[in-house]
């Protein structure tokens, strides 16, 4: 059914920390590895070792240059931005589906595609502003992130492994998985503490996944004057030096 269920109590999703993500693409690779053999598999690659490789991925890691606002004393920075399905509260990709292949789970809010019902009309991918859905021309059906639904409830895995492959693979712990419907959960507290944000909130799809903006960089004297300082500007307090160095300073200063 493409009619949306009543908002679930449980809203499973990801919190992605743009402050700590280093853009290593480990999440994208781990996702591809798991899902190529998972319920959403295969994630077909066309011409994988040829001139123009082309394939389905559920995670894409963009890198942006951020030029600070003139008013802020912040330095310029690069921000690495992992993009995947946000498991929206009101996903248009689900309601536009003519066959009922796209659906949002009533129990935990995960948005999935039933590939046995998908006719490959691609309308859902047009309806998603986040580019979460990628069509596989080889299989003729739409593919999307499953939030590793075949891992997170999988009792054959050790409990510590029952989280999405992307979260487990992240070497800087920039990805967090949990219940964003529970205000007491670790992820909800993280969002509250760090001011987690929605992507394109003005469109009203109410994404479940949140992004933590980069923390302000420390702006001290060393940062602001870096590169401009000459040795004449450096202040050395001989009184603070150990005796041997104080003697050396006195000899060299003659």
């Amino acid at each position: 059914m493409t009619a949306l269920p009543a908002p679930s109590q449980k809203k499973l999703g990801l919190v992605i920390d743009l402050d700590t993500c280093v853009g290593c693409h480990a999440c994208a690779v781990a996702c591809k590895e798991w899902n190529a053999g998972g319920i959403a598999g295969p994630l077909t690659d066309e011409n994988p070792y040829g001139k123009e490789p082309f394939g389905v991925w559920f995670n894409r890691v963009h890198s942006y240059e951020v030029e600070p606002l003139a008013a802020s004393a912040q330095p310029a920075m690069t921000v690495h931005f992992p993009r995947s399905c946000l498991h929206c509260e009101t996903p248009a990709c689900v309601t536009v589906c003519p066959t009922g292949a796209s659906y949002k789970r009533a129990e935990d809010g995960i948005v999935l595609v039933d590939e046995d019902k998908c006719i490959g009309c691609k309308l859902c991918s047009w309806a998603c502003p986040y580019g979460a859905r990628e069509y596989s021309a080889v299989e003729g059906v739409m593919k999307k992130c499953t939030l590793c639904v075949d891992r997170i409830y999988n009792e054959h895995l050790d409990e510590i492994e029952r989280q999405p492959a992307c979260v487990q693979a992240c070497p800087t712990r920039a990805r967090h998985f949990g219940d964003l419907g529970d205000p007491e959960s670790k992820v909800s507290k993280l969002v509250a503490e760090r001011g987690g944000r929605d992507l394109l909130p003005e469109l009203g799809y109410k994404p479940t996944n949140k992004y933590l903006p980069p923390r302000p960089r420390r702006v001290g004297e060393s940062q602001t004057t870096a590169g401009k300082a000459t040795h004449a500007d450096e202040k050395l307090d001989p009184a603070a030096l150990p005796p041997v160095l104080r003697w050396l300073d006195r000899v060299l200063s003659r």
Binding site: S63, E65, V66, L69, V79, R83, R197, L199, Y211, P214
Partner: peptide, 16 residues
């Protein structure tokens, strides 16, 4: 689109 509103002007540095 990138949750970076109010932080700075965002330009593409490298595509995924």
């Amino acid at each position: 689109a990138t949750a970076l509103e109010g932080i700075g002007k965002v330009t593409v540095f490298e595509r995924p």
